[in-house]
Design a protein around this nucleic acid. Structure first.
Lengths: 207, 207, 207, 207
DNA sequence: TATGAATGAGCTTTCATTCAT
DNA sequence: AATGAATGAAAGCTCATTCAT
């Protein structure tokens, strides 16, 4: 019974925390980190400012938690894609598809992350940013391994080092996703992952 | 003598302006727009705060001037590359090379631009940002035209629409340049433009 | 108990607001609107600057509140006087007396209002000023109506239009009150309203 | 020849000074003392800011000079009126008329003076203000003397002390002049001085 | 002598954070 | 435990004044 009471309280706490993060995400992604005040977030989440500070010791902490929480969801989705059964091509297709879905479902977070973090790795956000970079590095290495395996299996020409190919694939995804972010109607990618893969897969220059 | 006096003054003004912009660039790219105060910039440039405001009517104005000034230099360099003589492949090579050089020479500005602008088009920087986006759009269309011409000339397979190819090429450049930005020793790109072109040019998948 | 707590808080809020307004009034009337800083007011009222801004959203707002609050008190007192029972002469006597009392009790505010507002209707204070002017206009019309009624009743000679008489009476009051404001000992008016009325009432020129 | 050179220079200086004061008057009366910068005045007068400071050691000094200069002109005009030939009634009529003219011709100055000075006698303008007050006091005494003489001559009833009558007359003039200042079309006074004198002269209450 | 570039004290205002209730 | 009133450091910006030219 003790544990149940505690767990109910904890469940409530988690729910409150989520509401706060949701409010913060909405505001941050709409107006940018520096143009949102802690009072605004508290008001939107319908908590007192003091309560907000009970959960997050300062604004930066709240921001980091937000980014990390979202990053976790991405991590899970992308990891699952890379572990999908099938040959190298299938794995990459799954990855490209998963990235598209994750992106589409979390446009707000991504907008926020790119608005506030890119290049700002040297300042406030250093901590989060490093974490995110490390994760990206991890994915790049796993994708590189897939390319390497594909090359060894004779499935891919070795047109570049595997890590380079991984960066190329990932950045092509991001580029087209940003295109879609700016103008959701005009672009095919997130719906059709092969559109991207083809660019990398088909030889462009006549032979 | 009159003209000389005036020109000396004007030269001094330009020099002062440059010092201010340099100080601002250094601080902005190190700490981010919102974490740098006008006093800080003035102090770093060794001018009084009032003098800074004589040159730039407010903080946003200073930021815009900084970005636009750099953007002009990029524009000139990249335009020249796209107008170079030679076939489509040569033009693209020149572009990739020019982008690499410009990037390497202006790492700080680029860091700043990506730190503050991406997605922040909703806030303060809307004006500059639109300008920069328009320029990028212009380049993408010119690159797309080169791809189209190359396809018509039978030099390229039509593996995707020209505009898509343009986005792909440009974002591959950016991706590898950011890689280099983070870790200048380990990457070949800015020195060897063909490393990038090959990814797009050579067929990856076995045929 | 709930209500009592709330009412205690509200009472405290009102008390704080009054302290702030009192501090502001003292400083403004001593040094003039533009020569008093918000920090000064906060310090004099013994609040933090942020607390001051919780109550008044900016300096102008504080000033307007100050003037309007006082203006209300004048309005009430003078209106009551004009509605007093008795004939026209009695009503006017009541008005002159009430104006004297109100003036004497609020010398600081009046000093402030005349220091900052007169003719400055072109600047910041346009809003309040118009309000005050409208109120004055209202009183002048009510006084004019009394004169008119007195003339119709044969109690007054029609030596000028009623509105002109109203202006004359009101400005005589003000003139003597300013005299008293500058040198409180030497003048009889606020204590003896008939001193003023007589000037208007008794024929000056021999007939 | 020496003297002539000097006098030419001095004439020029006086002319420059007048241009500066004229520019300052226009700006001050339009926007109020605190809303006009020294740069604005210098620009309007078409002098360098440094030159302005050669003539007036600071902003307050410029303001005082402006008010005093205008005050001199009033002084001369009003003094002349009080010294006009004729009996007491004629002298007063001349005064009322002169005040009206002076007022009409110098509306800008008067607006300025009343906007910035009234009641602010305790702050910046203390010096000027005292000077102006002293002059007003002087006029009031001279007018009082006229009333006294008129009373002794049996021309006036002694309905109040002469000084009080002087204040009454002067403030009636001012009141109606302000009425005209706010709404130049609707009022007769500055054109018809008897309109005011009558209020004081004719008995109002039936006898 | 006239200039106007340069100065920096000081203003209004915001907002992350604390802590008594 | 939750609240939100109170805090005050620090920001952007203005403008009276100075002084080297």
């Amino acid at each position: 019974m003790e544990t149940k009471t505690i767990s109910r309280r904890e469940r409530q706490k988690i729910a409150q925390r989520m509401e706060m993060l949701a409010a913060a995400l909405e505001l941050f992604s709409e107006k940018g980190y520096h143009n949102v005040s802690m009072h605004e977030i508290a008001a939107k989440a319908e908590f007192a400012i003091g309560t907000l500070y009970k959960f997050f010791s300062n604004k930066e902490d709240l921001y980091k938690a937000l980014i990390l929480e979202q990053s976790d969801r991405f991590h899970v989705a992308l990891s699952k894609a890379l572990e999908s059964p099938g040959d190298e091509i299938e794995k990459l297709r799954q990855y490209v598809q998963a990235k598209g879905e994750v992106f589409r479902e979390n446009a707000a977070t991504i907008r926020l992350y790119f608005a506030e973090t890119r290049g700002a790795s040297l300042n406030i956000m250093a901590g989060v940013d490093q974490d995110i970079r490390n994760r990206r590095e991890g994915f790049l290495k796993r994708i590189a391994a897939i390319f390497e395996s594909g090359i060894r299996a004779g499935r891919f020409h070795q047109i570049a080092e595997p890590y380079i190919l991984a960066v190329a694939l990932d950045s092509l995804c991001s580029a087209f996703l940003f295109l879609w972010l700016e103008n959701p109607e005009n672009h095919s990618y997130p719906e059709d992952p092969d559109a991207i893969l083809n660019i990398l897969f088909k030889g462009l220059v006549q032979t």
